[in-house]
Computed example of a mutant assay.
Amino acid sequence: MDLDRTPGQIAYAAAEEVRTLNHRTLGLDRIAFENPPEIGATVEGLLALTDRLGQSLQQLRAGLQQFDEQQAIRMDDGSDPASAATKALRDLLNAEQGLGVMRASLRSAGEAVSHMGGHFAPEDEEDSAVV
C-alpha cells in the first residue's frame, strides 16, 4: 500500500485498474471469461470495490464538511462557497446512497453466480463416470 501518493492520484490509479478490467472483459475477439465462477470472482471483487468506495465517499464528505465549517473554501469565481459546499455535500451523500443500491444488486448477483459452474468437456464426463 503506497500512502505517499495524494488521494487524487490513488483514485485515478483505481480508475485505471477498472479501465483495465473493462478492456480485459471485452470479449470481442476471445471469450473474456473461462467459466461462470470467474464471473462470480469478478462480481465479488467489484463488491469489495463498492464497499470500499462507500467509506471513501464518507471521508470525502467529512473532509469537505470540515473545510466548510472552518470557512476555508474560496471559489475561483469569487462567489460565496457556502451554496457550492452544500450542493457538493448533498451530491456526495446521494452518490453514497446510490452506491448502496449498487452493492445490494452486486450482492444479489453474486449469490446467484456463486452456485454456477461450467459444463464438463466430453473427456471429463468419461473420467467422472462411475464404473
Score class of each variant (00 low, 15 high):
1 M>Q: 00
3 L>S: 01
3 L>W: 01
3 L>M: 05
4 D>C: 01
4 D>Q: 07
5 R>G: 02
7 P>C: 08
8 G>C: 02
9 Q>I: 01
10 I>G: 00
10 I>D: 01
11 A>E: 02
12 Y>H: 11
15 A>N: 11
17 E>H: 12
18 V>S: 03
18 V>T: 15
20 T>F: 06
21 L>I: 06
23 H>Y: 05
23 H>Q: 06
25 T>I: 14
25 T>P: 04
29 D>P: 04
30 R>F: 09
30 R>S: 08
31 I>Y: 13
33 F>N: 10
34 E>P: 03
34 E>Y: 11
35 N>E: 15
35 N>T: 09
36 P>N: 03
36 P>Q: 08
36 P>T: 09
37 P>H: 15
38 E>Y: 07
38 E>W: 14
39 I>R: 04
41 A>D: 14
41 A>P: 09
41 A>H: 14
42 T>I: 04
43 V>G: 01
43 V>Q: 01
44 E>M: 06
49 L>S: 07
49 L>W: 03
50 T>S: 15
51 D>I: 08
51 D>Y: 05
52 R>Q: 15
54 G>A: 06
57 L>S: 00
57 L>P: 03
60 L>N: 05
61 R>K: 06
64 L>G: 00
65 Q>F: 07
67 F>C: 10
68 D>K: 08
69 E>Y: 10
69 E>S: 07
71 Q>L: 11
75 M>R: 11
76 D>K: 08
77 D>Y: 11
79 S>C: 14
80 D>I: 00
80 D>Q: 06
80 D>H: 06
81 P>K: 03
82 A>Q: 15
83 S>G: 03
83 S>W: 09
84 A>N: 08
84 A>F: 13
87 K>V: 07
87 K>I: 09
87 K>F: 05
88 A>H: 02
88 A>Q: 09
89 L>G: 00
89 L>S: 05
89 L>Y: 00
90 R>T: 15
90 R>P: 02
90 R>D: 05
91 D>P: 04
92 L>S: 12
92 L>Q: 12
93 L>T: 00
93 L>D: 02
93 L>R: 02
95 A>E: 10
95 A>L: 12
96 E>Q: 15
99 L>R: 11
99 L>Y: 07
102 M>P: 01
103 R>L: 06
104 A>L: 12
105 S>N: 14
108 S>L: 05
109 A>E: 00
112 A>L: 12
118 G>S: 15
118 G>F: 11
119 H>F: 14
121 A>S: 01
123 E>I: 12
124 D>Q: 15
124 D>I: 13
128 S>V: 14
128 S>Y: 12
128 S>D: 13
129 A>Y: 05
130 V>E: 05
131 V>R: 03
